[in-house]
Design a protein around this nucleic acid. Structure first.
Lengths: 195, 195
DNA sequence: AGGCGAAAGCGAGGGGCCCTCGGGTTTGTC
DNA sequence: GACAAACCCGAGGGCCCCTCGCTTTCGCCT
């Protein structure tokens, strides 16, 4: 799974070791303190000089991007599965919930994601675009099935997901889920009238 | 309008002068750079030492709170007006739009607002609570009129407003407004079926 | 007018964090 | 082994937060 094959480029042994340590420590530090945690702390914990961290990941976003890449595969897999779901409306809703959860692994991540949208070269940019594309397919199906309003765009879905992810690290998680539910109802063709 | 009467405590002339200068510069700096702008810059622009800034406003939130207090009056006034509006559903929607705009004057403000919720002593906390109370009344009317789902709470409204405010400084403003519209539709008793 | 105590202002300084860069090490290869 | 390339190191410049002891200014009172 984590075989050296991801990049064709072969790294020197020490480089690869530091690279992996950095990723591992970054993951735990970001989990503990959120996506704006001190990079110097990450380097320290990884037993590596700060310059080495920057040599491997020139920017915080690059580091986050590397961290997210693995998890993303799961989300895309789910997306494919959902594309064949019998209920296109429910499928889109599930997708939105999954992506929201994914975009909220580290608190403060949503800001970084949205912030990377105008930075086309950013590591995170590509990820966001792919997400958008996957979501678009699900949205199309949901609209065709009449489950979702015709005037809703993929950008809307993306924005709502981001907002929900942001809420998730401001509020207790159950409340945040509830808000996402309300947003999902907002794009539905018919209100679920659950009052 | 800015007569000295706000606090019963009389300030020394130089104190009041610096206080006002700080507020004025803070306003423009936050407008230019967002709510996380450097406080040292604010002090510098106000022609005041950094210690003086902290003497007046012990925390960034205190400064933001002071800045927002004036604007808040407008929002509360609007709230009162809307309470007598003939269409309770539309009134709630207008109020949500107004509060969202208010909570997005400075980019990054939404984070500060939500962050101050557990800090009961914070300057911003009181403001948020008052907002919540005002919103609750409008929500009650909207529910009674059958314009809004019965299961929606004031906390929901508050959360959606916050999320919309956050979106507002991540996205072009018109897009953010659109998202808020979707959220508003989400809490409506019946989907507006505008597809 | 002048003096005095309290209120207010000042800004150096300790602590952090970000990021760069020149010089010292390690690795892998021949 | 030895050499060049790849890699690592960490001091240092820049910016920021916030505190605290010392100095200045204000405003009242004689």
């Amino acid at each position: 799974m984590s075989s050296p094959g991801s990049t064709p480029r072969r790294m020197r042994a020490d480089a690869r070791r530091n690279h992996d340590r950095l990723l591992a420590e970054a993951r735990t530090v970001f989990e503990e303190q959120g996506a704006q945690a001190s990079l110097e702390l990450v380097a320290r914990r990884a037993g590596v000089a700060i310059g080495t961290l920057y040599a491997h990941f020139p920017t915080r976003r690059a580091l986050l991007g590397a961290l997210l890449r693995e998890r993303q595969d799961d989300v895309f897999a789910l997306g494919d599965t959902l594309l064949t779901d019998q209920d296109p409306g429910a499928a889109l809703a599930s997708w939105m919930r999954a992506v929201t959860a994914h975009a909220a692994v580290y608190s403060g991540l949503a800001d970084q994601l949205l912030g990377s949208l105008d930075d086309t070269s950013s590591e995170l940019y590509g990820a966001c675009k792919r997400m958008g594309a996957a979501g678009e397919a699900l949205l199309g199906r949901a609209k065709a099935a009449g489950a979702v309003r015709q005037d809703v765009t993929a950008d809307d879905v993306f924005a709502l997901i981001s907002a929900a992810a942001w809420l998730r690290d401001q509020l207790p998680p159950d409340r945040a889920d509830r808000q996402l539910g309300l947003m999902i109802d907002g794009i539905a063709a018919t209100a679920p009238a659950r009052d």
